[in-house]
């Protein structure tokens, strides 16, 4: 029973939602909107689960004194500070309309909830930007390995990459037009040809395969053939 009910629900919702996709009738549209709303309702429960498991994980780390356990305190400090400033006085929580018992908090908040926004803009955003910027260095190291011309494929990749890079940089066309007597803007034309023909064809091949794979996987799930995601083998 524990597995049959989810399987029946999966089958019903799978078939109904697929049919709804092909029906513009207001009843279908309403059903779709309703199910999306149900999906949204799960969100807050997920948040509670997330917070509980995060607290549990880091509490265990501190209690067992595992390696670098001290950093778990930072998780708690960050969480408490952001919740303390965000929850009672967040922009989506009534703005300046605080209940009387929370009015003494106002001096923290300011008219535009500056403290919460300050923490977000000056702590979280720079840290995320730092991680994102690492990507530039990783692209360089990955490219170095990929473009070592050891095999025929790697050589082709290197040649295509060089053409695309030169075609992308405006100086490529300028130099070509100045130095070469043959044709105009050849680097950017060649770059566009590579992107529009071999590149796009391979991408479309992958997308077709993915689409068929998604349909196949969905059928397996809807008909209960693939059920390992429910836990257990059979």
């Amino acid at each position: 029973m524990r597995r049959q009910v989810p399987l029946i629900l999966c089958f019903l919702f799978g078939i109904v939602m697929m049919l709804v996709e092909f029906s513009p009738h207001p009843v279908s549209e309403g059903l779709r909107a309703e199910v999306i709303e149900w999906d949204l309702i799960i969100g807050p429960f997920a948040l509670v689960i997330g917070v509980v498991t995060l607290v549990h994980t880091h509490w265990i780390r501190i209690r067992r004194r595992v390696e670098h356990w001290q950093y778990s305190y930072l998780v708690f400090i960050g969480m408490i500070v952001m919740v303390a400033f965000g929850l009672p006085m967040g922009p989506k929580n009534g703005g300046n309309e605080l209940p009387k018992w929370l009015e003494w908090f106002k001096w923290f908040k300011g008219p535009e909830n500056e403290v919460f926004v300050w923490f977000f803009d000056n702590v979280q955003v720079p840290m995320e930007a730092t991680m994102f910027s690492l990507l530039a260095f990783f692209i360089a190291s990955a490219s170095y390995r990929a473009f070592r011309a050891r095999t025929l494929e790697a050589t082709l990749l290197l040649a295509a990459a060089v053409i695309v890079m030169i075609g992308n940089a405006p100086i490529g066309d300028v130099l070509w037009n100045e130095l070469s007597p043959v044709g105009e803007n050849i680097p950017s034309t060649a770059r566009q040809w590579i992107l529009d023909n071999p590149n796009l064809s391979s991408r479309r091949g992958i997308i077709l395969g993915v689409s068929l794979g998604v349909i196949s996987q969905s059928i397996r799930i809807i008909f209960g053939i693939e059920r390992s995601y429910l836990g257990g083998g059979d």
Partner: peptide
């Protein structure tokens, strides 16, 4: 275990 929903915090 759960880490975070934030993309780059998760990567870090």
């Amino acid at each position: 275990f759960f880490v975070t929903e934030s993309q780059f915090a998760y990567a870090a």
